[in-house]
């Protein structure tokens, strides 16, 4: 039986992601944990998160989980979700400039205020709701139709330096990176655990992924 650890560092509700992982594959042992030993012993690791980046990085640094995540990133399949994805960049504009984990070179920026859609309607921040995800080939998109809609809620977005790491984009109104990948790391801005069938498929793909391309 394979196992997946969901990193608990006090940022947001982990029950949804744990339930969705269990639903995606009932044979997998799902563990919500703040314990580095448990996390490092799991076959795969999910790094979720909602809330503010400064609190997130502070919690990761104080608990030592920042180092744990870096160890996981160098050794086994790792899935970052929402704030977890953003924390993988070099730094974030949120809360002044917050230094992040630097698993991907690049920055996290805020959507500009006062943007409008093609009909001139104000684009709201947070970007909240179901948006289309246009992807490049990667094993984690298996069985997911191109341009499927996933559920987003965020005010900041990742801007990686290396265009090659972007494996999917969405438009709001310009294209932004909504999925990043490098070796055994995969990260998404949207919430697969709240994205119905396609979200569960992505989680199932992750649970069956060996970290290779």
């Amino acid at each position: 039986m394979s196992s997946v650890a969901v990193i608990d560092y006090g940022m947001g509700n982990l029950h949804s992601i744990a339930k969705a992982l269990q639903h995606a594959d009932s044979s997998v042992a799902v563990r919500i944990s703040a314990d580095a030993d448990v996390i490092l012993a799991a076959d795969r690791v999910v790094f979720p998160g909602v809330g503010a980046m400064r609190d997130c990085m502070q919690a990761l640094n104080e608990t030592g989980l920042a180092e744990t995540i870096k160890t996981v990133a160098a050794s086994k399949p790792l899935l970052g979700i929402c704030l977890g994805m953003q924390a993988m960049l070099s730094d974030s504009e949120e809360g002044g400039i917050t230094r992040c984990l630097n698993l991907f070179d690049g920055h996290v920026k805020r959507f500009a205020e006062g943007l409008a859609d093609t009909e001139g309607n104000r684009l709201k921040i947070p970007h909240m709701g179901w948006n289309q995800v246009h992807y490049k080939p990667h094993p984690l998109w298996f069985n997911i139709p191109q341009d499927s809609r996933f559920y987003f809620v965020h005010s900041y977005y990742a801007a990686p330096d290396d265009a090659e790491v972007t494996v999917a984009t969405s438009n709001y109104p310009q294209a932004f990176s909504c999925a990043l990948a490098k070796n055994n790391i995969f990260a998404v801005q949207f919430h697969p655990e709240k994205s119905q069938t396609v979200g569960l498929q992505l989680l199932q793909n992750f649970l069956h992924w060996d970290g290779a391309l």
Partner: peptide, 8 residues
């Protein structure tokens, strides 16, 4: 194509 309007 962009963000969908939601029905709740």
């Amino acid at each position: 194509m962009s963000l969908a309007k939601r029905i709740i």
